[in-house]
Amino acid sequence: MSEPLLAVRDLGAGYGEMPVLRGIDFEIREREIVALVGSNAAGKTTLLRALSGVLPHTGQIRFAGEDVGGLPSDRIFALGLVQVPEGRQLFGQMTVQDNLLMGAYRRSGRLDLAQDLERVYTLFPVLKERRRQFAGSMSGGEQQMCAMARALVASPRLLMIDEMSLGLAPAVVDQLLDVLVEIRGQGVTVLLVEQDVFSALRVADRGYVLESGAIVREGSARDLGDDPEVQRAYLGV
């Protein structure tokens, strides 16, 4: 089998003297949806920050056949490792369309851009309706769609989404999960980082459970969902 898209070996990271992550091993294959679940303060966001190159770390990170461990964040971004940050981080006083165009800031080529805008507007028709509206004036669900669309315009190979479902109504979460499946169909690999274990495991192929900075369980989404430990700890069963 070919090399995975992302392979992480023995990764450790932290803030100052305080280690948050230790001995993290995991991998993501091309066109997979992988869920990384865990409770608050398990180290999920820290892991994403290390992967994006904005936080120093130990251990090895290989992405798309390259060692990206020491690269600056903009180089990693240019290779196609794109993050939808927690809390969306939209440009609130800019229009939806301008937000999407910022996703393409590092790209050149106008034709592709027009096609990509059309593609994300097809995925999220409501954004097309609201494209001249300030992003900050939309509902939480629409803002999450805008953040995901902005990331998609950046042509990701691996899309990492931090707490997609946070603060959203279940119906909206379902809609976004469907979009993830559709995105994967278009060739984008997805890493879904969630506290909402139930939702994440529903669309994921595989999952990892992060607890106190270490991966404590891994397996297919089905196995994890059936695991009595996981059920007890996260699903409230």
Binding site: D74, F91, Y105
Partner: peptide
């Protein structure tokens, strides 16, 4: 111009999308 406005509004996100 967009990058200037984006930097003013949300530095974290601007950096995330490759603005220097």
């Amino acid at each position: 111009g967009r990058a200037i406005r984006a930097t003013a509004q949300n530095l974290v996100a601007a950096r995330l999308y490759g603005v220097e």
